[in-house]
Design a protein around this nucleic acid. Structure first.
Length: 566
RNA sequence: GUCCCUGUAGCUCAGUUGGAUAGAGCAACUGCCUUCUAAGCAGUGGGUCGGCCGUUCGAAUCGGCCCAGGGACACCA
């Protein structure tokens, strides 16, 4: 709806400018400006619902004062808008400041939107940007060598919300977790558990520094040790088989823990993609063979290299080490080729900041595979620093001591933690105040929004008891400035969703929902919904019902609940 | 050393492809509940937008050079 109104206004403006100046200027520059017209929503409401700066941009070209240009445009705009096809759109237009054209919309535009939302609920809020694009969103993808950390928690919160945003914007989205279930780290995991297992058997062991230090390793070892049947089986294994067994068992059991953590966090995945299976499938070999045929793979210094410099990387990268093992890059290229092969045409990866330097080579790989580098978007999810009473919570990755997703979830709960992880732009650092997130006061933005939802629910429940009839309300009774503010805020939902989808960042929704809640709270404070006038009550219930639908949908996208009462 | 990100109120941050008087929340202070949920609302104070130069009708925003903080630069994953 927002987009449609914006488009209509733009074409109306274009027509006005053409009719005012087509004879005086036919220069290409004139049409450049005409074709790149933009509208903005002014911060101050006295400047209208939309504003356009085209008069200033035309001033030099037309050698005319921007104010008088704006006046010319406005007068022909008014003439046009009085014609039947536009007479439901513009209430007024005026020139202000250096030459801004400020447009005020007719309330009918807002009324129509309210009706639309009340008729088709969430459906009215969704967009149609996808156009058949199949999106593969890969996120978290943490190695199954330990519990998820706060860093993973933010990636999970962002990834899940982004998937919801894109789905709401009309994309076909698949959520995937790339499971690093083989390789060095998994071997070390197996070896770590095996050592602890031996220790439990009374053996004296030396525990290397590069092994996993956490107590959960001992817990896993104990699980295996305490299972007598399993222990007998383990005794019979040869040394290499034993190593393998512990690696597999460890990875499997930790994966179960991770799945449970994500589930409790409300984050779900459609596909768990195993690197081990990828290796077995022969896809790595065929991908490298394919690239070799294209001339992007060569051998040197005993290793196999990917010619990523061909596509703008700083230097070429090893895909197969001189000892014959693949580097991480080899299966990753194959994995991305497989993503495309499965029919996805838009790949989005959420990575931690430590993978920042990895982007150019992955982009290079995508291009080497014959795709456009735009087909892969990598979003760096910056770290969240935890604070308690204004002091940063110390974090040590050594000795396996790090704050886990589970701890944050247990301490502040799902709603607050998910919301807090989304409160800043994804690629910006985030300060997460545990004490603030726990507070159930106005200081906490989550409760501010949820409270607005609960208040509306409560009013609607009260109204239901009084059995208001369901006939079409007379929205023209909504004349108070706070009511208009609310309608305008409601109107901007789809624009917010549009921006979030374009920027691949759900963060904007947290800002919008706080704003919408604020406008509602101000309206609530000044006006009674349940007024003595039944027809007004009817209209106001209709209005706040729409707010409720938007709040609930917005919160659902963010993975936060919308309580009926608080 | 090279590249990337960040620098806006006491704190955490917004600032819509350059727009109108730079905003919000928190913190501080002051008011508002016999009336739909005070987890709310209203008000007050608080700024050299890191610095300098440039681009133009117009710069927090774009460009250049500095200053400060963070991160990335493996035949690890």
């Amino acid at each position: 709806m927002f987009q449609r109104v914006e488009k209509q206004l733009l074409s109306l403006l274009k027509e006005s400018i053409e009719s005012s100046y087509c004879c005086t200027s036919r220069q290409p520059a004139f049409y450049d400006i005409l074709n790149s017209l933009t509208l903005e929503v002014p911060k101050e409401k006295e400047f209208g619902d939309f504003s356009c700066n085209v008069a200033m941009r035309l001033a030099r070209l037309l050698r005319k004062d921007p104010k008088s240009i704006a006046l010319d445009i406005v007068s022909s705009l008014k003439k046009l808008s009085s014609e039947i096809r536009y007479d439901t759109l513009i209430k007024d237009a005026e020139v202000k400041g250096a030459g801004f054209i400020n447009i005020f919309l007719k309330e009918k535009v807002f009324f129509d939107y309210l009706a639309l939302i009340n008729d088709s609920q969430e459906q009215a809020l969704k967009l149609d940007l996808g156009r058949g694009a199949r999106v593969l969103l890969e996120f978290v993808s943490a190695n199954p060598t330990g519990s998820l950390s706060v860093a993973h928690a933010r990636q999970a919160a962002v990834g899940d919300a982004l998937a919801n945003v894109l789905a709401a914007a009309g994309y076909d989205v698949t959520r995937e977790y790339y499971l690093n279930d083989e390789g060095n780290q998994i071997n070390i995991l197996g070896s770590s558990i095996l050592l602890r297992y031996k220790e439990l058997g009374g053996e004296k062991i030396e525990f290397p520094e590069d092994h996993y230090q956490g107590t959960y390793i001992t817990d896993l070892a104990r699980e295996l040790f305490d299972d007598k049947a399993l222990r007998l089986k383990i005794e019979k294994l040869s040394v290499p088989d034993k190593e393998l067994f512990f690696s597999e068992q460890g990875a499997q059991r930790i994966l179960d823990i991770i799945k449970k953590e994500l589930d409790d966090f409300g984050v779900r995945f459609d596909v768990w993609y195993s690197q081990k299976e990828l290796g077995k499938s022969g896809k790595i070999e065929s991908t490298l063979e394919n690239l070799k045929k294209k001339g992007f793979i060569y051998e040197a210094e005993g290793a196999v290299w990917f010619k990523s410099t061909e596509f703008g990387d700083d230097k070429d990268r090893v895909v197969r080490k001189s000892d014959g093992d693949y580097t991480y890059l080899a299966p990753d290229i194959a994995y991305h080729e497989d993503k495309f092969r499965r029919g996805f045409n838009k790949l989005i990866n959420l990575w931690g900041p430590d993978h920042h330097g990895y982007i150019p080579r992955m982009k290079a790989a995508v291009r080497a595979l014959g795709k456009d580098s735009q087909d892969l978007s990598v979003i760096i999810v910056q770290l969240a620093t935890l604070f308690r009473k204004g002091q940063p919570v110390p974090m040590s990755t050594r000795k396996g001591q790090y704050v886990t997703l589970r701890e944050v979830l247990t301490e502040v709960g799902r709603d607050a933690s998910r919301f807090f992880f989304l409160m800043r732009k994804t690629d910006s650092h985030l300060d997460f105040d545990l004490e603030l997130a726990k507070k159930q006061t106005s200081e906490n933005p989550v409760y501010y929004i949820q409270y607005a939802h609960a208040r509306i629910s409560s009013i609607l429940a009260g109204a239901q008891d009084k059995k208001f009839d369901t006939k079409e309300p007379d929205l023209s009774l909504l004349k108070e400035p706070e009511e208009r503010d609310l309608m305008k805020a409601i109107f901007e939902f789809s624009y917010c969703l549009f921006v979030c989808a374009k920027q691949l960042d759900p963060y904007g929704l947290t800002v919008y929902l706080q704003c919408l809640s604020g406008v509602f709270h101000r309206f609530y404070d000044r006006h009674k919904c349940l007024s003595p006038d039944d027809r007004l009550t009817q209209a106001r219930l209709y209005l706040i019902g729409t707010v409720k639908i938007e709040l609930a949908f917005g919160l659902k996208i963010l993975g936060v609940s919308s309580p009926e009462r608080m």
